[in-house]
Design a protein around this nucleic acid. Structure first.
Lengths: 313, 313
DNA sequence: CGCTTACTTGGAACCGGTTGCGGAACCGGT
DNA sequence: ACCGGTTCCGCAACCGGTTCCAAGTAAGCG
């Protein structure tokens, strides 16, 4: 493996100059930069990451904390973040923690020593625990907002409101909202949104839950949905909706409209079912961009809360 | 942040001794080890990863390469590998590459500079491309076998064979196997297994495919399944099976048995449907263990091919 | 034409651990 | 008391970049 010293020797300059030519071209003579680059190219020079990190005091790694990998909501986020990280020459490590118990803070603190920043998803943990987790390194909160923290969220609450309004307009009279996991921040937002959307409309709104975001849980909601004599259902998660649809079909019930995500609706060719379309990948990208500004990698306006609109169809 | 020098000073020894006391306790006097440990504890000393890496010439990072994160087959593997990695104080980075095109080798090579080893899933790429990807660093191949490479696979082929035998025994006469993505190694194994299981049995076996492992593709198989007048179906992937079941139910067809994974079967309470149960997490753990031995982190017997049996029920 | 200013560059310290090597202290054996 | 063999420890070099600082050079200006 060629080192910077090799490159410098070949280019006929010092290590210091070689380092500058490669890292901050504006601090070296154009002619020198060209020569050093050529030398690096010729030798196939790849900077030693550990050395760079040690010298700069940065790890070049950011951690994404997710509660689970089994939920298809999180994986696209990881993908998006990973792509953006790679673009900036950073690495992404994944850490699975639900941030629901104090004990997990220790794990986060441990991890904090090895990364420059965090991308944090914490659907259920308390504000306090999330704040504690974010206290070690620059952090961007994903799909949740907490006063004073930088965040990137998909505005699903508005989408859910729009969904319910649509149902109301279509004349549905008994609408059911299936709540997500207990303590979920997004669930609270969505509850408020669907409530607002049914207020002063003739429709009845039944709130079910809490349920975990799983297929099995969705299957388990069928009974309550039937009991509520629902004509339209808005489930917290795609997996819940899928389980419910399955259970309903299994019972031979085909006149209950269950809202889902666009992908499902399209593949099943159900044109009477409205769908939402969360772009998880973009969410990950946006969050990573924000973290980059927090880390000073870019000189853009100060980071804030960002909300991505979620289209429905 | 306290450094090793601080610890050494507090313990009244040199950096060298402190390093030994912490890293290889057998090379220092027990009394000294105790004193250094106490000092480290008191200061909350955490070794600087970059410094260690630089000095040792290892990165302490392993990469998991997966074709996609949208497939629930891979995520448990990642989880298992991540857990094992954490146990050994290593980091895991995720890299999304399907290893189907030569161009992706360049990305892998780039990544190779930053990690100690690879956990490679490459369901579809050619043997050559996989070999090329594995040529940079110690590598464990997951869910696929290639001559001369260390690998960890879930023996789903046998499970599929058993599944089909079961159907045959139950008296099913027209069995359909829905093939996975074109070029899939596992698909080839399973095809052979299901063929063997129907040979010299009265049952007819129809092979469909190839199809991608998605819900939508599963929905799309319904027509062919119906056309084949199948009584039992064995789909390559859970997602395909789920899509198919959905489409069948949607058409009011309820007498076709679609084999699925245990989780689905249980949540739906379908007792006449056989299921397989791949322990992806364990697969990830086993693979990481093998990689550790390859990296010399442990002194165990030489690594080889490992096959995990897949139970059916 | 002398002097200030701006730009380049190399020397060397430094980031924080790890490890080869040599010396000192201590062991039991004769 | 002397000796070969251990055990334990410190010195210092080293991993491979980054960056402060001083020095040298060329350009700019009155």
């Amino acid at each position: 493996m060629p080192t910077l010293a090799d490159v410098a020797a070949l280019a006929g300059v010092s290590k210091a100059t070689a380092s500058r030519a490669l890292g901050r071209p504006d601090q070296a003579a154009p002619e020198t930069v060209a020569r050093v680059r050529a030398a690096a190219e010729q030798l196939g020079f790849v900077p030693n990451r550990a050395a760079t990190q040690l010298a700069r005091g940065r790890t070049g790694v950011v951690a994404v904390v997710v509660p689970t990998l089994d939920n298809t909501f999180f994986t696209p986020i990881i993908g998006g973040a990973q792509a953006r990280a790679a673009d900036s020459g950073m690495q992404l490590t994944i850490s699975v923690h639900s941030l629901e118990h104090e004990a997990q803070i220790a794990a986060i603190e441990q991890l904090a020593h090895q990364v420059d920043g965090f991308l944090l998803t914490a659907p259920r943990g308390s504000d306090e625990i999330v704040r504690a987790a974010a206290s070690f390194k620059p952090t961007v909160l994903i799909d949740r907002e907490i006063e004073g923290m930088t965040s990137a969220v998909a505005d699903t609450a508005s989408a859910f409101g729009a969904l319910v309004s649509w149902f109301v307009e279509k004349g549905h009279e008994r609408i059911v909202y299936i709540g997500g996991p207990a303590g979920s921040w997004q669930d609270r937002q969505r509850q408020a949104a669907v409530r607002a959307a049914t207020e002063s409309s003739g429709a009845t709104l039944t709130m079910l839950g809490p349920y975990p975001s799983t297929f099995a849980a969705g299957v388990g909601t069928a009974e309550a949905v039937v009991a509520a004599r629902a004509t339209a259902v808005v489930p917290y998660a795609t997996s819940i909706g899928l389980g419910l649809m399955f259970a309903l079909l299994n019972r031979g019930i085909r006149d209950v409209v269950v809202s889902s995500e666009r992908m499902i609706v399209e593949s099943l060719g159900l044109d009477d079912v409205p769908a939402i379309d969360v772009d998880g990948e973009r969410l990950g990208e946006v969050a990573m961009d924000q973290l980059m500004t927090l880390l000073g990698e870019r000189k853009e306006p100060p980071p804030t809360r960002r909300r991505l609109t979620v289209p429905i169809s």
